[in-house]
Design a protein around this nucleic acid. Structure first.
Lengths: 249, 249
DNA sequence: CGAACACTTGAACCTAATCAATGAGTGTGG
DNA sequence: CCACACTCATTGATTAGGTTCAAGTGTTCG
């Protein structure tokens, strides 16, 4: 599959990024750019382009040769992979100021996943070739990058372990807690957390069918542990934590 | 669990490694030390100790704070993780000249897995603090390390995807093919590959019970796709590839 | 030779997938 | 603004895939 990557609106910005102080400060929260001076960061930003993507658009598709690496500015991106069957797996969610696509740029096997915007998004994009130069020129970024990749490997070990040993119900509970902490928003004046996520995407994330997932969620709704509708979920972490932590079941 | 890591025989060698040319050449096949000159490699080796471990011994345990990073010289090490239940998951196999334990040294959450020798082994060990210095002093190693970690993330994506979408039978077939390629040995004058691996470990690797795994293997034995006994398996890759690749089932 | 361990097999049970049908939300065009 | 189509979500009935429990067989090792 060598078809060109579809990036809706990719022609919108062909010039280097307008660097406002606000953007710089936002980017310093990116794990890659931690402890980087404003000046250095601005220089690195000169190599970047802004790539908007409307809902459903792809930054890259599995099988593509990596040409760029990205840092998400706003919106949300899902890392998905559709295997030999028709079943689609969601391998991860990318939230603003997180880098994505750069593991594949170094891994040497092409893109293993597709990156699809699940809402209107924008990302900074650097040519993959620049990445190597940035890493060699800026030891701090290289160090940050090590820690980031290490943390991701650890996170994947955790998830893999869950898939190898835990029941679906626990996996769903743990997924909801983890998603609540990352892509969730606190509901005003309540311990509840709201996650904008289609139930089918949750299913694809935990490795289940939408049917079974829906049954579990319905049961939890009856128990007042969560509430949900088309494309959203509200969860009360306390109750779910009990299910996620309990031994057995 | 802050109990001291049990490394049987860890007192055997307290001094720096005797560096024979053979060992140096072997280590240049390690992904970390690719394209490193003999001289540099010898210097780096001076910081290393040899850590033998007899079968069943641990290099580190999940929960430990990382103190060393390792490169396996001989034997085999399994990366395992025992969760809240009693079920044990095997997250990976380490074969000679592969590094292990260094993701955790950088990840910052302590060891997420335990590293247990599944046969008498020996590994080179560097103090974790030295790792950072090596990475900053030797850009080539840093680059190798990036590529290695990236490749591992890709490999984990692959495995995670399998766990999310594929049936147990296909997972077993794919696991056997992959293990045959890494820890297997060709049988003389035959396309067959022999893997020294307990069936229960295969089960823990694919996320199943030994019972179900045994049933699948028995069926395949009847079909002359594999042969096996206590602690070993012989497989004919051609037949298994059909099962691993087939859509459905 | 005996004990421990790994593997196998059968039967009952349970979890989750599949098939089928219905209901609810969202977007579009008239 | 409403009707329509479309997609997402729910629910019931059925089936399949895996687990669990239990018993038995063969290997290896002390």
């Amino acid at each position: 599959m060598t078809a060109a990557t579809v990036v809706p609106g990719s022609r919108a910005s062909r010039h280097s990024v307008a660097v406002g102080s606000r953007k710089v400060r936002q980017l310093q929260r990116c794990p890659l750019f931690r402890s980087i001076s404003d000046v250095t960061l601005r220089r690195i930003l000169e190599y970047a382009r802004v790539r908007p993507a409307s809902r459903g658009g792809f930054y890259f598709r599995q099988g593509d040769q990596p040409v760029e690496i990205y840092v998400l500015l706003r919106g949300r991106v899902q890392l998905i992979r559709s295997g030999s069957g028709d079943r689609r797996a969601i391998l991860g969610f990318v939230t603003p100021v997180e880098p994505f696509g750069y593991e594949d740029a170094l891994g040497g096997s092409g893109h293993m996943v597709s990156a699809q915007a699940s809402e209107d998004s924008a990302a900074l994009a650097w040519p993959a070739a620049v990445l190597v130069r940035i890493l060699t020129d800026h030891p701090v970024i290289a160090h940050n990058s090590f820690c980031l990749m290490a943390a991701r490997i650890q996170e994947k070990w955790d998830r893999l372990h869950g898939m190898l040993t835990e029941s679906l119900e626990r996996r769903v509970a743990r997924a909801l807690l983890s998603l609540g902490a990352t892509i969730g928003r606190r509901v005003e004046g309540s311990p509840a957390v709201r996650v904008m996520l289609a139930h089918r995407d949750l299913a694809a994330f935990v490795g289940a069918t939408p049917y079974t997932t829906s049954r579990i969620l319905s049961r939890w709704k009856r128990l007042r542990l969560i509430d949900g509708g088309r494309g959203w979920l509200t969860l009360w972490p306390r109750g779910l934590a009990a299910i996620a932590g309990d031994r057995r079941k």
